[in-house]
């Protein structure tokens, strides 16, 4: 039954991804992506990575997508006239042929990597417990193990990433700040809509 669920979630996530690309309304795009993330979180869970599933929901779905929604609504994009042809009319544009080719190339390469690699666990191993990796004996649980690694071996990247977050916070504030007259660097009128 878990297998069937996996395939269902996989199909749904693909459909949602396609929806991200093809839908017109930006909010529809965001919601579609959100749905895709939920499906992926389920898949993570099924594969035994509970911590990641939680992180995915909390951070990706709960923070990043919310941020996207905020910005869209801030800029009032939904009410703007349609920016472009969407839907299948996307493919009528000039570059679309090359795009499809490149994307297809990427897909094929990925598949080829999978197919060609001898180490791929193409079949489940005979002695693998039906519950997946949870029942692997002698190993710490996922969260415990990850904490041990994170604050042990990967302490430096962890600290670096925290610095990165700090820098980002500062950068975002600076970038999105409405320009005061004294701070104006380039000539030009300020944004029409008052978006403080």
């Amino acid at each position: 039954m878990a297998n069937a669920l996996f395939y269902l979630m996989a199909a749904l996530s693909v459909v949602a991804a396609v929806g991200v690309v093809l839908l017109r309304n930006p909010i529809a795009n965001v919601l579609s992506l959100l749905f895709s993330f939920f499906c992926l979180a389920t898949i993570y869970l099924l594969a035994g990575f509970q911590f990641l599933a939680a992180a995915q929901i909390l951070v990706y779905a709960g923070a990043i997508m919310v941020l996207f929604l905020f910005v869209i609504m801030l800029l009032n994009l939904a009410s703007l006239p349609a920016l472009e042809d969407t839907g299948l009319a996307l493919f009528a544009r000039g570059r679309s042929g090359v795009t499809v080719v490149v994307a297809a190339a990427l897909l094929c390469l990925g598949l080829a990597a999978v197919v060609g690699s001898p180490a791929t666990a193409a079949q489940t191993l005979a002695d693998m417990p039906p519950d997946g990796i949870d029942a692997i004996k002698g190993t710490p649980g996922l969260t415990e193990g990850m904490a041990g690694e994170m604050f042990g071996r990967y302490l430096l990247p962890f600290e670096a990433v925290s610095m990165l977050l700090l820098a980002t916070a500062v950068a975002v504030v600076v970038l999105a700040k409405r320009n005061r007259p004294g701070l104006e660097v380039r000539a030009g009128r300020d944004a029409g809509s008052d978006v403080s």
Binding site: A2, N3, F6, Y7, A10, S13, V14, I43, L46, A47, G48, G110, L111, A113, V114, V115, T120, A121, A122, Q123, T124, M128, P130, G132
Partner: peptide, 12 residues
């Protein structure tokens, strides 16, 4: 779940 890892890669 006993889905082969290959399928996960393919999905990705």
């Amino acid at each position: 779940m006993t889905v082969p890892s290959a399928h996960l890669f393919i999905l990705a």
